[in-house]
Computed example of a mutant assay.
Amino acid sequence: MLQGLTRVIGKSYSPLILKGLATVVMLFMASRSRSAPLCKSVAQVRTMNAPPSGHAPHSHFGAWPVLDWPKNRDTAAGIDPNALLKNLLTRSGLPASEARLLVLRILRDNAERHLSVEQLCAAMVRSEFAPGISTFKTAIYDLTNAGVLSRVLVPLNRKLFFYEITDQPPHRHLYCTKCQKILEICDEVMEQRILHQFALAGLKPANFDLARIGKCLACAKALPGDSRNRLP
């Protein structure tokens, strides 16, 4: 190539300049010859790593991660409505029995998110799959002991326990004695202070919360002034 450039350009340039120019041209042509197969190989690798059509990508653990619940909810529901619930059971080490999945489905689909054992059993009776009451209650207690469910105690004249799925950040609960609704309070600073007090006392937080009782704003406004602060 150096000799060809010398014949074309003539004697206008020195051999050193011509040699440098020929080297640049040769490197350019070599890079172009390597670029095409490189791009093709990258495309082949992407095709090999892509999931088959109709299959969803899996996380590192082979299931939908709990922390990605909002992001993956619609995608997972389109593939398997129980995918995220099964993942909760897998991470807790519990087998995905029909009774346990039914408990989680009822809580997931309920707008209030907090249900008592009586409310859960009433919803179970109305469902298509209705196991025995004892089997269903055992599933509730198994899920609670495994940390999949959390208990909320409302301290009234009789103990009232509500259950919720532990798929949300740590929070506290308020209970209206008039409309009997549970309100969630999310305060990261407060949670850090509570954990700090647990650590100072050498205690490990239990899967449990004590609800503070009172009357919500709407119910308080609907009552006469003298009875706004009275408990039932």
Rank of each mutant, 00 (worst) to 15 (best):
43 A>C: 06
42 V>A: 08
150 S>L: 11
60 H>T: 03
35 S>E: 15
73 R>V: 02
138 T>W: 06
93 G>R: 07
129 F>A: 06
90 T>I: 03
97 S>C: 08
98 E>W: 03
83 A>S: 08
78 G>S: 08
126 R>T: 10
44 Q>W: 10
152 V>R: 00
131 P>E: 06
54 G>N: 07
110 N>H: 12
104 L>N: 05
55 H>A: 14
76 A>G: 10
109 D>E: 15
79 I>R: 12
150 S>H: 09
84 L>E: 12
48 M>R: 12
40 K>C: 03
140 I>S: 00
41 S>R: 15
69 W>V: 06
86 K>S: 06
95 P>T: 13
85 L>T: 03
33 S>D: 12
116 S>M: 08
135 T>M: 08
114 H>V: 08
72 N>W: 05
142 D>F: 06
99 A>G: 02
139 A>V: 07
67 L>Q: 10
103 V>P: 02
32 R>I: 15
88 L>W: 00
114 H>I: 02
115 L>C: 05
68 D>A: 15
110 N>K: 01
143 L>I: 05
81 P>H: 09
76 A>Y: 07
129 F>D: 11
137 K>G: 04
145 N>Y: 09
150 S>G: 15
104 L>H: 08
86 K>I: 02
78 G>C: 07
73 R>Y: 11
67 L>T: 04
105 R>M: 12
146 A>E: 00
33 S>F: 13
153 L>I: 10
125 V>P: 01
122 A>D: 12
33 S>H: 14
78 G>H: 05
121 C>D: 12
102 L>T: 11
122 A>T: 01
153 L>N: 13
31 S>E: 13
154 V>F: 08
114 H>N: 12
90 T>L: 14
109 D>M: 02
30 A>L: 14
101 L>H: 04
29 M>W: 10
80 D>F: 07
139 A>R: 04
150 S>Q: 15
67 L>Y: 09
133 I>T: 09
99 A>T: 12
52 P>K: 15
80 D>R: 09
81 P>K: 11
37 P>L: 14
107 L>A: 05
71 K>P: 01
41 S>G: 05
69 W>L: 13
65 P>T: 04
114 H>W: 06
86 K>Q: 13
98 E>D: 09
147 G>F: 06
145 N>G: 05
84 L>A: 08
137 K>R: 14
29 M>Y: 09
149 L>R: 04
29 M>C: 06
55 H>S: 13
153 L>F: 10
84 L>R: 03
83 A>W: 07
127 S>K: 00
100 R>M: 11
151 R>W: 00
134 S>D: 13
104 L>T: 05
77 A>Q: 10
152 V>T: 10
82 N>E: 12
125 V>M: 10
36 A>S: 15
49 N>H: 08
94 L>C: 02
68 D>F: 10
155 P>A: 09
28 F>G: 15
135 T>W: 02
35 S>M: 15
118 E>I: 02
94 L>T: 01
138 T>P: 01
112 E>W: 07
119 Q>N: 04
50 A>L: 11
